[in-house]
Amino acid sequence: MNKLFFNLAAVCALLLSVGPLQAQSEQQIKSELQKKIGANTKIKSVSASPISGIYEVMVGNDVFYTDTNAKYLIQGEIIELASGKNITEQRQADLNRIKWSELSPANALKAVKGNGTRQLAVFSDPNCGYCKRLEKSLQQLDNVTIYTYLIPILSADSAQKSKQIWCSADPQKTYVDWMINGIAPSGKSDCTTPLDKNTAFAKTYGITGTPTLFFTDGSRFPGAVQIADIEKKFSSLK
């Protein structure tokens, strides 16, 4: 009985030691890989992947892989053949999620269509061509509330237009008039705006391009997303 107890205790001790040893190994891999790729590219984390001997490397919100010796940096996708699941794609989606509750509606233009039950957040630059294309497509949606967060990242003129839009008597109408009808905003631009807050939020969450859409589950869709894909996503949230 004493021998059995000793063996069980040894197994438990071994299992408890796996975590720290693995963490130490991952830290060593991260350190070694960081030396090789240089200080200009910051590695956020290194962790075990589903494949033995292959480690996930996080650089910004991008997923790469490396080997135990940090000799190779692998760019590609891991697909589980049994299920067809794209492990990398799912991981990337999870990393790019935000908490919907962290958005501040007070800092956004707001458009309500129909009953407004479905919700969508869009980060947009008024001089972004793809944003204009998306805005035209969004006009086809019904029963939706769209929050548009202006982030003037393209030029000084983007900042000026964003201020003029926000400071107008009807910001949402002024925005749509410009994005769809080409009626340039005019008037004052010296009111208090949330543009700095929106830009800071975008930087924190790695929103580097416009348009970028977010749904209530926190999932991120970059670019001028097709209406069919937006409707499909809304359907999956029901």
Rank of each mutant, 00 (worst) to 15 (best):
M1K: 04
K3A: 14
F6H: 11
L8W: 14
V11A: 13
C12V: 15
C12Y: 13
L15C: 07
L16T: 02
L16H: 03
S17T: 04
G19S: 12
G19A: 12
A23T: 07
Q24V: 10
Q24M: 15
E26M: 08
Q27V: 07
Q28K: 15
I29K: 05
K30V: 00
K30G: 00
L33Y: 05
I37C: 01
G38C: 10
K44C: 03
S45I: 05
S45N: 15
S45T: 10
S47G: 10
A48N: 15
P50M: 13
G53H: 12
E56S: 14
M58L: 14
N61P: 03
D62C: 00
V63F: 09
F64G: 02
Y65A: 00
T66Q: 03
T68R: 15
K71S: 14
K71R: 12
I74N: 08
Q75D: 13
Q75F: 14
E77W: 04
I78D: 05
E80M: 12
L81H: 09
L81Q: 12
A82K: 15
S83H: 09
K85C: 05
I87K: 07
Q90F: 10
R91K: 15
D94I: 09
L103S: 11
N107G: 10
L109E: 10
L109T: 08
L109H: 09
G114V: 05
G114C: 08
Q119E: 15
A121G: 09
A121T: 07
F123C: 06
F123K: 08
D125Y: 12
N127G: 11
G129F: 13
G129N: 14
Y130W: 13
Y130D: 09
Y130I: 10
C131Q: 01
C131T: 01
R133H: 10
L134G: 03
E135Y: 11
Q139A: 14
D142L: 07
D142S: 15
T145Y: 10
Y147G: 05
T148I: 07
Y149Q: 02
Y149E: 00
Y149S: 00
L150Y: 02
L150K: 00
I151D: 03
P152K: 09
P152H: 09
S155C: 02
S155G: 01
Q160E: 15
K163T: 02
C167H: 00
P171F: 07
Y175E: 01
I180F: 04
I180Y: 06
N181I: 02
I183T: 07
S186E: 13
K188V: 02
D190L: 05
C191F: 06
L195T: 03
K197D: 06
N198I: 00
K203I: 04
Y205M: 06
I207Y: 08
I207R: 01
T212I: 01
L213M: 07
F214R: 07
R220A: 04
G223Q: 00
A224Q: 00
Q226N: 10
Q226Y: 04
I227H: 05
I227V: 11
D229H: 05
K233Q: 13
L237I: 03
L237M: 07
K238F: 09
